[in-house]
Simulated assay, not measured.
Amino acid sequence: MSRFFEGTVTTLAFCWRLDRRDGVTLGFTSHDRDLMIGGISYRAAPGMLPSAIHRSAGFDADSMDVRGALADDAISEADLSAGRWDGAALRLFAVDWTAPDEMVPLARGELGTVELSDDAFSAELRGPTATLERAVVELTAPECRAELGGPRCRIDLAGRRRFARLVAAEEERLVLDTAEPSANAYGGGVLRWVRGRNSGLTGAIMASAGAEIWLRDPPAFAPAAGDRVEIVEGCDKRFATCTGRFGNGVNFRGEPHLPGNDLLTRYPGG
């Protein structure tokens, strides 16, 4: 434990480092002045406060809440609603603000559920042990459980991602300046905004036809013609698609020929 805990507690300050999935890193502190630590400026505004930190030596999931004020130039309501902070990596540590080079780690994890109320927000911190709450054994299903391009799928996506410019947009429907390589090639894929107000955000593609694609949800911010996007091909998880389109049946992670529960209800002559 750091020596500064043995001294006066008036020099104690909490610091948060937030690393968003789009590469943006921000630092905040509970101190009343900004602190420079490790080349990162930890801002005193918006003020952020942690709840009681619960840590265990067992396998129970550690949890903590982080609360703070909304600020247009730091954490805005629009960015929170758009999902820019979903899954952001968070590290909480304590420092002596008179000599902030020495840090005492307190908690780490990723942001979970974010709630907005008035001019403030609260977010749940999910620690590393939260991953133990996931299902251990996979359920059988006729569709593939692997992610296209993932280590279990092994399809190389290098030639299946393209950059395009937006021509027109209407709710979930987008028109691009490039056509799909095959029918519904981007259905089940991902669109990532590279330029424009939505830069850094991603969206799931439901279907594609020619130069048109349909997203699962409308963009968080109104897009403009000329915005650049990256589009990645998708897969409908069917065995016929895996073998016919990708030639990857050997890595199919589903059970398309396994009888379902309806087999138990069958009877002679039924």
Rank of each mutant, 00 (worst) to 15 (best):
T241N: 05
T129P: 00
A179V: 15
G189K: 00
L148N: 09
P128S: 01
A224V: 15
G226D: 07
A99K: 03
T241P: 03
A57H: 13
F4C: 06
I231D: 01
A120T: 11
D217Y: 04
R91W: 01
I205S: 13
G7Y: 10
G47A: 08
E143I: 05
S182G: 12
D262A: 15
L191R: 05
L264H: 11
E102I: 05
S63T: 07
A164G: 02
R245L: 13
I37A: 04
G203V: 00
T241V: 07
G234C: 11
A207T: 15
S81C: 07
E138Q: 09
G249C: 04
F93K: 05
V137E: 14
A225P: 12
D73Q: 09
A207I: 15
T25N: 02
G189S: 07
R165V: 01
L263V: 11
G247N: 13
C144M: 05
A209P: 00
T129L: 10
E172T: 14
D34P: 04
N261A: 11
E102F: 06
V190A: 11
P268I: 05
E180S: 03
D118M: 09
T113A: 14
G39T: 03
L35N: 03
C242G: 04
L26H: 04
A168L: 10
V167R: 03
D227N: 07
A107P: 04
N261L: 15
D62Q: 10
Y186W: 13
L258E: 12
L70A: 06
F121E: 00
R165Y: 04
F93G: 07
S117N: 14
D118T: 15
R108W: 06
F4D: 01
D119E: 10
F14A: 14
A209T: 10
R192I: 12
L201K: 09
D236A: 15
T243G: 04
L26R: 08
A240Q: 08
D96L: 03
